[in-house]
Amino acid sequence: MIELEGVGRSFTVRRKAGRLRRDTHVVHAVRDLSFEVTAGEFVGYLGPNGAGKSTTIKMLTGILSPTTGRIRVAGLDPSRRRTALARRIGVVFGQRTMLWWDLPLKDSFTLIRHLYKVDPVRHRNRLAELCDVLDLGGFLDKPVRQLSLGQRMRGDIAAALLHDPAVLVLDEPTIGLDVVSKAAVRGFLRRLNAERGTTVLLTTHDLGDIERLCRRVMLIDHGSLAFDGTVEELRATAPDETSIEDVVTRLYTRAVQS
């Protein structure tokens, strides 16, 4: 469902090197990155700040084009088939919203139906299902700006799934949520993957999400893949550590030293 082969992404940065002079530097955000995610997998994509996670997500969704290598998501080249890909994937950015700030939540869902050209009957049935499992009914008529963070996040997840995508990409979906809201979102994502077979790629700094949701974990550092395996295999890399946070910290340290 997701294929990356030898993918790299570089940026040219100009930095001040004196009062009148600037030097040009090439920053390699992603280097020779290769992996596959098969249909129905729930994969955690970890890395410290600046490791290349967000750049990878932007390439997978067609926002950025790779400098080198090849990407396929749901059989499509994201940068060349961005519109077609949008009908096959859903994306949730925890620190941004795809909802209209001053409109009631239900009106945002109606606009999204038109954007994706979803059949009205299919949309109505899908929305009813999402309202039930995400408990949206109590605030569908409230403007998005009046929603709590947990309510808005559940609304964003519903918006990303209204067109029933085959692939769901999540970037920090539980950031800032309280314990109850986190549990609700995690439970829904687990059910979505188990019952509908939706392929999920999750990037997060909340390792509780990884432990409770993911069967497979990939760790990226300095733009390269440092680990790819199960959560159990991740723990086995540092058996003396008691928490997954300590295991990941140990892996980060090893990656930097090497």
Rank of each mutant, 00 (worst) to 15 (best):
V217E: 01
T12W: 03
R216K: 12
G6W: 02
V185I: 10
L115F: 13
E241Y: 14
K182W: 01
D102V: 04
G94W: 10
S258K: 14
A39S: 15
V256H: 11
L219V: 14
L168M: 04
R82A: 13
T174F: 10
G47P: 06
H163C: 01
A158F: 04
L136F: 02
L4R: 04
Q146Y: 13
T199N: 00
E233S: 09
W101P: 09
L147V: 10
V13R: 13
K142Y: 14
L60G: 03
I71D: 03
A84G: 07
D221E: 11
D228Y: 02
S148A: 09
V37M: 08
M218S: 03
H222P: 05
R196C: 05
L201F: 03
A166I: 02
K16W: 10
T24H: 07
R72V: 08
H114P: 05
W101F: 10
D141K: 11
V248N: 00
D141V: 08
G208C: 01
A17S: 12
V92C: 00
G208Y: 04
A74M: 11
L99I: 03
T55Q: 09
R126M: 09
K106T: 14
P239K: 12
Q257T: 13
K16T: 12
I57H: 06
M98W: 11
R80I: 01
T12E: 13
M1T: 11
D240I: 01
G208E: 12
S10C: 04
V26E: 14
R190K: 11
G18S: 03
L192A: 00
T12R: 15
D119P: 01
L234V: 01
A236E: 10
M218F: 06
P143L: 08
I71R: 00
T203M: 09
K53T: 02
R191Q: 13
L105P: 07
T83F: 09
A166R: 10
T199M: 05
T67R: 07
V43A: 01
F42P: 05
S10M: 08
F42V: 12
S65K: 13
R21Y: 12
T67W: 10
G62M: 10
A255H: 09
E232Y: 10
F35Q: 04
G8W: 05
T230N: 07
G94C: 03
T38R: 15
R235N: 02
L201S: 00
L170Y: 09
E3S: 13
A159V: 11
L85A: 09
R212L: 15
A184D: 11
R154E: 07
V73E: 02
L202H: 04
A51T: 08
M59G: 04
G90I: 01
D32F: 05
C214H: 06
S148P: 02
T237E: 15
D228W: 01
L85V: 09
L202C: 05
R122H: 13
L105D: 03
W101I: 10
A184G: 04
T204D: 12
P165Q: 08
S224E: 13
L147T: 07
L201G: 00
E195C: 04
T61D: 02
L202R: 00
E232S: 14
K58Q: 12
P143V: 04
T249L: 15
S108A: 11
T203S: 15
H28G: 08
D228T: 03
T97R: 03
G69I: 00
R31E: 14
G208I: 05
R254T: 02
D77F: 07
W100P: 02
G223N: 07
V118C: 09
T230P: 05
L147W: 06
